[in-house]
């Protein structure tokens, strides 16, 4: 599988498929650049950005402390030259890709979290069938629309987080900006969701 920036973004955000995760983790410890069509310097830049993201999001990767150390231990087997290559492109990585934790990377879709976990869907208009209480994050720079199967339609502002709730069989949308920040509403997410993209 070819490693692309889109796949790396999904890996960093925890929404990559199992096959993508396996491919990326193999690539992270590989020095073979012939299998990839991207420029080797670009590959090194992306690799450095992923490692920095792992360092800062160690807990959010849902791994134990021991397994993170086990993953990291692979790096010590990289030749020192490879480590210096990461160092040399480091500044370029931060400036070019702007993958800092504060700014994050902007994707094009929605991140919808149910009891089954998060899924990222690309597109502009969606129809969802769900029960319970979902979190929906519009991670793009555009407005998106969401239609519930009971007929309710909502517009999602760029960069905003919402909660879709179910009351007496109808669905309502709550903007997170109106909720108390000291509460973590993700802990209350429940139910299942099926997403149907209308247009892409």
């Amino acid at each position: 599988m070819e490693i692309t920036p889109a796949i790396l973004q999904r890996y960093n955000s925890g929404t990559a498929t199992d096959a993508e995760v396996e491919a990326i983790e193999t690539w992270l410890t590989s020095t073979d650049t012939e299998a990839y069509s991207l420029d080797p310097v670009d590959l090194a830049e992306m690799k450095a950005a992923v490692w920095d993201n792992l360092l800062e999001q160690a807990i959010d990767e849902q791994r134990s402390i021991r397994s993170i150390h086990a993953s990291r231990s692979k790096v010590i087997y990289l030749p020192l030259v490879a480590a210096m290559l990461l160092l040399l492109v480091g500044v370029v990585v931060f400036q070019k890709l702007n993958w800092t934790t504060a700014n994050g990377s902007v994707s094009e879709g929605l991140l919808i979290t149910s009891a089954q976990g998060p899924i990222e869907v690309l597109g502009d208009n969606f129809k969802v069938q769900f029960s319970g209480y979902l979190q929906v994050v519009n991670r793009s720079n555009q407005y998106k629309s969401i239609e519930c199967t009971n007929g309710e339609q909502y517009t999602l502002d760029p960069g905003e987080t919402y909660y879709l709730e179910t009351i007496d069989g109808r669905h309502y949308l709550i903007a997170e900006r109106h909720l108390s920040p000291e509460d973590n509403y993700l802990r209350f997410v429940k139910g299942e969701v099926e997403v149907i993209a209308k247009t892409i």
């Binding site: 450095a48 490692w51 920095d52 360092l55 150390h69 086990a70 990291r72 231990s73 790096v75 010590i76 990289l78 480590a83 990461l86 160092l87 480091g90 500044v91 931060f94």
Partner: peptide, 17 residues
């Protein structure tokens, strides 16, 4: 920034960091 990133890289390379 290079020195800072160098420090981060060394941390990344050290499983006991």
């Amino acid at each position: 920034r290079l020195l800072l990133f160098f420090t981060l890289c060394l941390q990344a390379c050290n499983p006991f960091g």
